[in-house]
Amino acid sequence: MVDAIQRKALRIALRALNCTPGALLEEEAGVLPLYLHRKQQSLNFWARAKSRHGSNPVNKLVGTGTFIKGKILKR
């Protein structure tokens, strides 16, 4: 559903026709597809949490990275 909203917003912003493919709209606007953006945000979160050494309570959840890797591999 969020993908459809993004495509609709890009069509309006770029003044494109309804038949224009979503991938072409994303390329023209210079934005990442939402699934790649979510993956990037997850990896950034994991890297930030791991860089805090033991001081971040999220490290207990993240551990060796299997928490985030499991989320990414489900796609």
Rank of each mutant, 00 (worst) to 15 (best):
N44L: 14
L24H: 12
K69A: 05
R11S: 03
G63Q: 00
V58D: 02
E28Q: 07
R75Q: 11
L24D: 05
A13G: 08
S51C: 11
S42M: 11
K74Q: 14
A29G: 02
T64I: 08
I5D: 03
N44Y: 12
R15K: 15
S55R: 14
G30Y: 04
H53Q: 14
L61Q: 08
V31F: 05
A29E: 10
I5Y: 11
R48M: 11
A29S: 00
N59M: 14
N59S: 12
G63L: 07
E27H: 10
K71I: 15
F67M: 06
A4M: 14
P57A: 05
R11C: 01
P57V: 06
V58H: 05
Q40W: 14
S55T: 12
G54L: 09
S42I: 08
I5T: 12
Q40M: 11
V58L: 14
K50L: 13
Q40I: 12
L36E: 09
N59D: 06
A13Y: 04
N18W: 14
L24W: 08
A23L: 11
A13S: 11
L17C: 07
L32G: 02
P57W: 03
K69N: 08
F67T: 08
P57E: 04
A9Y: 07
E28A: 07
E27L: 14
Y35N: 13
H37G: 07
P57F: 07
L34E: 02
T66L: 13
S51A: 15
L32I: 09
G63D: 00
K69D: 08
E27Y: 09
F45I: 10
A13W: 06
N56R: 10
V2Y: 11
Q6P: 04
L43D: 02
H53Y: 14
T20N: 01
F45L: 15
I5V: 13
K8E: 12
G70Y: 05
G65T: 02
S42Q: 06
Q40P: 01
M1W: 12
E28K: 10
P33K: 08
S51I: 06
R11P: 00
R11V: 01
R11F: 02
G63P: 00
L24I: 12
H53D: 13
Q41T: 09
I12D: 02
V62K: 01
L34S: 00
V2D: 06
D3K: 06
L36R: 02
V31I: 13
H53F: 13
A47D: 12
I72V: 13
P33T: 07
W46K: 14
P21A: 00
A23H: 12
A49D: 00
I72Q: 00
L34Q: 05
G30R: 04
L43G: 03
G22E: 04
R38Y: 04
K74W: 08
L34A: 03
V31L: 07
R38A: 03
F67E: 02
G65I: 01
A13K: 08
A49Q: 02
S51W: 10
R11W: 05
H53W: 15
R7M: 13
A47S: 12
C19T: 15
M1V: 09
A47G: 09
K69C: 09
T20G: 02
K60A: 10
R52L: 01
K8N: 15
N44C: 11
